[in-house]
Simulated assay, not measured.
Amino acid sequence: MSDSSLRLVWIYPDLLSTYGDQGNALVVERRARQRRLNVTRIDVRSDQPVPTSGDIYLIGGGEDRPQRLAAERLRRDGGLQRAVDNGAIVFSVCAGYQILGHEFVNDLGRPEPGLGLLDVHSTRGEGARCVGDVLADIDERLNLPPLTGFENHQGVTHLGPTARPFAKVRFGRGNGTGDGTEGAWNDTVFGTYMHGPVMARNPQIADLLIKLALDVNALPPVDETWYEALRDERIAAATAAT
C-alpha cells in the first residue's frame, strides 16, 4: 500500500484538545504509517482556514468557551462542511461531537448553532456529570470490537431520525439520555463522548477511518500487542469498578 497517501487534518488543537485527544491524530498517523501509507498531517489552528482537501478530519474536546469560539470559527470558515460534501471522513470527541450537531448550549447558557453534520442536538444535563470509564458495544454495521473510553461531560445529546448510535453502553452514561446510546454516526461523520484518547484504547476505529478514506475493505495486519494490553487493562479495571 506504499503507493497510497492519506491527508490527516487535526482541527483547532489550540481550542479543542483536552484529555489527550490529540493522541487520536498520533494513533491514526501511526496506524497508517505501519501500513506503509504516505501520510501528510496538517494541524489547523483556529486562526487558519480549514483545508477542504483532507481525507480524515479529527476534532477533540474542549472547555465551554473554547467550544463556542471553535463553533463560531468553523461556521464562518465553511471548510469542514465543504470537505464532508467532497466525501471526507470526520471523527469528533465530546465538545467536537456537540459542534457537529445542530445545536448545543454554550458557555453563556444560550443555544449555539452547530454545523449540522450530524442529526443530533445537545442540551445541558440537570443531574450529576457523566464521569468515568465506559464500556459499550459499537454498532454491528461497523464490525468493530467493544468500545472502551473515559467520559467527562455535563452535556446530553439527543439523536435525530437520521443519526445512528455509535454504540450501546454496557455501563457508563454515554449520550446521557438514559436510552443507552453513546455517540452518533452517519456514513462519513462520527461523534463520541469517549476520551482516553479513544484511538489508543480502540485502534480499530483508526483503522476504520483509514479504510473509509481509502475506500478499501481491509488493511494489512500490524502488531496489536501494546494496544490489546491497554484495552484489556482498562476493560478489566472498569468492569471491576462496577
Rank of each mutant, 00 (worst) to 15 (best):
T188M: 06
G180S: 07
F166E: 10
F166W: 12
A163M: 10
Y193E: 01
D179P: 05
R173L: 13
E182G: 03
W185A: 14
G178E: 13
T181P: 10
M194E: 06
N186C: 08
G174V: 02
H195A: 01
T162Y: 08
H195W: 01
V189D: 09
G174W: 03
W185S: 13
G176F: 03
G178M: 09
R173I: 11
D179H: 07
F190K: 08
F190I: 04
R173V: 12
W185D: 02
T181K: 09
R164Y: 11
Y193K: 00
D179A: 07
V169W: 07
A184F: 07
P165Y: 14
G178N: 09
M194C: 12
D187L: 06
R164F: 10
T162N: 14
T181G: 12
G180L: 06
P165D: 12
T177F: 03
G174Y: 05
R170M: 11
E182N: 02
T192E: 00
Y193W: 00
T181H: 13
T177M: 05
T162R: 15
F171Q: 15
H195K: 01
G176C: 04
G178I: 14
G183A: 10
V169M: 10
T162I: 02
F171L: 15
F166Q: 09
D187Y: 04
E182D: 07
A167R: 10
W185R: 15
D187G: 03
D187K: 05
R173G: 03
E182P: 05
G178H: 11
F190E: 01
G183M: 10
A163F: 09
G183I: 13
V169Q: 13
A167M: 09
G183K: 04
T177H: 05
F171S: 14
F171M: 14
D179E: 12
E182V: 01
R164L: 14
A167T: 08
F166S: 08
N186E: 07
F190C: 04
E182W: 03
Y193T: 00
M194H: 02
T188R: 15
R164T: 15
F171A: 08
G172P: 03
T162V: 03
G174A: 03
G180N: 06
